[in-house]
Design a protein around this nucleic acid. Sequence first.
DNA 1: CAGGATCCGCAAAGATACTG
DNA 2: CAGTATCTTTGCGGATCCTG
Lengths: 109, 109
Amino acid sequence: MELRPLDSCSTCPVEFAMNMISGKWKLLILYNLMTDGTVRFNELQRRLDTVTHRTLTRQLRELESDELINRTIYAEVPPRVEYSLTDKGKSLTSILLSLQNWGLEHMVE
Amino acid sequence: MELRPLDSCSTCPVEFAMNMISGKWKLLILYNLMTDGTVRFNELQRRLDTVTHRTLTRQLRELESDELINRTIYAEVPPRVEYSLTDKGKSLTSILLSLQNWGLEHMVE
DNA sequence: CAGGATCCGCAAAGATACTG
DNA sequence: CAGTATCTTTGCGGATCCTG
């Protein structure tokens, strides 16, 4: 596949994709869901380690409104909320792999 | 290739790659150099259309310090400065294609 | 032509406190 | 447990003016 001309920025597929994954914690969230399938809110927060409660919530809401993740609420006490990838979210794996491959080849360890 | 575990964020290849291309105009700059080879400063500014002189300079400096682009200065009057991709910069094409493919498949036109 | 210097605005992220 | 409400911070990008 070749690089296409970028007619207009508002319809640029590259920018469209970048907007989905731009966000300090988004790729880390997606990565965790890719490898583990389903993760609860607090478990996710533990794994991201330094993320604040507030910020994690926001990032999850954005991913959800972009239809990259599912949010499942269980009517229990204490409450349980589980996050998982949608098919659209799963399809981002190709981008993550592409980024990872490039990083592995060009990072000085 | 499989997704690797993300041991530590400071050594995460995905984050390393993202840091290279995060910047409002960077992918657009790289795209222009990928398709045209060598471009002068003002020509680049015309193509990005709404970018300011100041901001374009900063983005170019960052790309240069990341060794993604070459900056060639010709000792002429008026001055001439040309930008082109390094091999490292050219290798980003795979990421751009990956982003573009995803965007084309998931954008509603 | 291709910058540098200064100042400013804004959106994203963090800190902290409170809650069903 | 999984949020929401406020407030503050910060850093990127923009606006403007000056120069070899």
